[in-house]
């Protein structure tokens, strides 16, 4: 960390987005995390994605639990809404917020401890309810904030600064696929080329989007023998595809080998253009994805990229048939429809 606020001076050639903001306008307060923590790079990637998507900061709500990762919402999008909840309980707070105001963009920011240990139940239920959100775990295999005990995502045999993990790991990607997430991706904090387009695609996805970002804890879990270190991830990274997020359709100008590029059009008209790095990988087939991930995990590979996408996402609001507008915009007339309306409702149950 540093004691100084980041100086206000900025590069004169920064290009403002449609709202007139540069990426620096999406910053938050200065990070208090350890120097070199992967989480800070994820914050930067989120800033870059929101800047590139021309997102109005007041349209974003950041929700988190407890942990170094859960502290990060303070360090990006300083002009957005934020709620730092209790350990492992971010998913239910996010669900409640989303039900009350369906108009905001929900960013759930969590850690592997927060989501795979104490919050595992919350995690799967939130995903299976198909909440329209981007759920990010900043996955370092340890409880960074409490000095580096292994979390539930640590691989068996993985070594931290002080110990060896003997327990089987929980695979959050596998659980998210099982629970019915309609957008599932894995990335690495040290590769913003891959991460930024994934975040942009997840924000534009109108359903339950989950991104597991391997994010090394330099303090407690970045040594030799760790499977969540910068070196290990770089050496074992097996990216299945590279994603371009395209807001409006353009002509593909570059020449590609047949079958190497796949495009998915989303409801808002944006295009996800996938450059296949593993030709046999099909991100539209959920069962195939689960198998592929298991097989490659066995081989010690860290599979990254856009792993599963359902272009027809579900949203819990549709299932519950809720009103189209945020609850805070309803007036007395809608909220107290009078005794006649009450009678009508009661009649329905008779």
């Amino acid at each position: 960390m540093t004691y100084l606020a980041k100086p206000k001076f900025r590069h004169p050639s920064l290009v403002p987005n449609k709202l007139g903001f540069t990426h620096r306008d999406y910053e938050g307060s200065i990070s208090t995390l350890c120097a070199g923590c992967g989480h800070d790079s994820i914050s930067t990637a989120l800033i870059q994605a929101c800047y590139e998507l021309d997102i109005e900061p007041h349209r974003v709500a950041k929700l988190s639990g407890i942990g170094c990762s859960s502290k990060t919402p303070d360090y990006f999008l300083g002009q957005s809404h934020g709620f730092n909840s209790v350990h492992g309980r971010m998913p239910s707070v996010l669900t409640g917020a989303n039900l009350a105001n369906r108009d905001l963009i929900y960013l759930g920011v969590s850690g592997d401890g927060d989501s795979a240990s104490i919050g595992l139940g919350q995690f799967v239920h939130c995903i299976r309810r198909a909440i329209n959100m981007v759920y990010i775990t900043e996955n370092n295999g340890v409880y960074g904030l409490t000095k580096g005990q292994f979390s539930a995502t640590a691989d068996r045999g993985s070594k931290s600064k002080t110990s060896v993990n003997n327990d089987a790991p929980i695979d959050l990607i596998g659980m998210a696929l099982l629970a019915g997430a309609t957008f599932v991706a894995r990335s690495f904090s040290g590769d913003k080329h891959q991460l930024v387009p994934i975040i942009k695609a997840a924000i534009s996805h109108k359903g339950s989007a989950f991104i597991d970002v391997i994010s090394p804890c330099v303090q407690f879990n970045n040594g030799a023998g760790s499977t969540k270190s910068y070196d290990f991830v770089r050496e074992h990274n097996a990216a299945v595809n590279r994603l371009d997020f395209i807001e409006e359709r353009d002509e593909i100008t570059a020449e590609y080998e047949p079958g190497t590029v796949q495009e998915v059009e989303q409801h808002d008209g944006s295009i996800l253009r996938l450059h296949k790095l593993h030709l046999d990988y099909d991100p539209s087939d959920r069962v195939h994805a689960m198998n592929y991930l298991q097989q490659h995990h066995e081989k010690g590979e860290v599979v990254t990229g856009l792993l599963y996408l359902d272009p027809e996402p579900r949203d819990t609001h549709a299932a519950l048939n809720t009103v189209d507008v945020p609850l805070n915009s309803l007036g007395t007339r809608e909220l107290c429809p009078g005794s006649k309306a009450l009678e009508g409702i009661n009649d329905d149950y008779r």
Binding site: T2, K6, P7, K8, F9, R10, H11, L14, R24, A35, G36, C37, G38, D40, S41, S43, T44, S189, G190, K192, P216, V218, N222, Y230, D231, R234
Partner: peptide
């Protein structure tokens, strides 16, 4: 250098 990007991320002048 371990290529963690921390310096890239913090630099106010890119």
């Amino acid at each position: 250098c371990i290529e963690c990007d921390a310096c890239v991320d913090i630099c106010p002048l890119d």
